[in-house]
Design a protein around this nucleic acid. Structure first.
Length: 158
DNA sequence: GCCAACGTTGGC
DNA sequence: GCCAACGTTGGC
C-alpha cells in the first residue's frame, strides 16, 4: 500500500521550515477550517508532508516534514488569550485538532510555485489552482516524487 | 497594499 | 434552507 502524503502551508515570517529544524518538533495548531482539520485527523504517524511557504519570497516548498504525533485536541481552542480561541468548541467534544510534525529534510532550494506549475504531474493539484486556500491538503505519490526529484532528492532515501 | 476567491455567519 | 454580508487567505 502506498503511504499517503500531505502538504502543510505556513507563513515563514511566522513559522518557516528553518524554525521547524531549530525546534525539532512542532504542534500544528491553529487550523480553523473543517476540511483542513479532517485532513489532519486522517494523518498517521510517520507519514510525510511537504512544507510549503505561503506569503513568502518566494512561495514554494522548503522541505519535508514527518507526522510525529497523530491528531489530538488543539490546545489553543480553549485559550481565551489565543487568537485561535474558539468559545464555541465544547470541552467534552473538541472541535479542532492538531498533529505534531518534525523535520526530515530541507530542500536544497525552495521549489517555487512557478516551478510546481511547470512540473509534470502537478497540473491537477489544488495548490496551483487560483483561490485554493486549504492549508492542509493531500498530495499524490506522483506529486510527492516529482517535487523531490525536481530538487535532486530521492523520495525513497530521505 | 490590493483584491479575487472562498468559507462562515446570521437574518429571514 | 437561502443568501448577503463579512472576514480571511494568499498570490501578485
Amino acid at each position: 500500500m502506498i503511504m499517503p502524503f500531505w502538504l502543510l502551508k505556513s507563513e515563514p515570517d511566522v513559522f518557516g521550515y528553518p524554525d521547524l529544524q531549530r525546534v525539532g518538533r512542532e504542534p500544528w495548531n491553529g487550523v480553523r477550517n473543517y476540511q483542513a482539520r479532517n485532513n489532519l485527523r486522517a494523518m498517521r504517524s510517520g507519514e510525510l508532508c511537504l512544507f510549503y511557504h505561503s506569503n513568502a519570497k518566494p512561495n514554494g516548498i522548503a522541505g519535508v516534514a514527518r507526522v510525529s504525533r497523530e491528531a489530538h485536541p488543539d490546545n489553543l481552542q480553549f485559550d481565551p488569550a489565543s487568537a485561535y480561541y474558539d468559545p464555541r468548541s465544547p470541552m467534552d467534544d473538541p472541535r479542532w485538532s492538531m498533529v505534531e510534525v518534525e523535520p526530515v529534510r530541507a530542500f536544497p532550494r525552495v521549489l517555487t510555485l512557478d516551478d510546481l506549475r511547470a512540473l509534470p504531474g502537478w497540473q491537477d493539484s489544488p495548490l496551483i489552482r487560483k483561490g485554493t486556500r486549504l492549508s492542509v491538503l493531500p498530495v499524490s505519490d506522483t506529486e510527492f516524487r516529482a517535487a523531490l526529484a525536481a530538487v535532486g532528492l530521492d523520495a525513497d532515501h530521505l
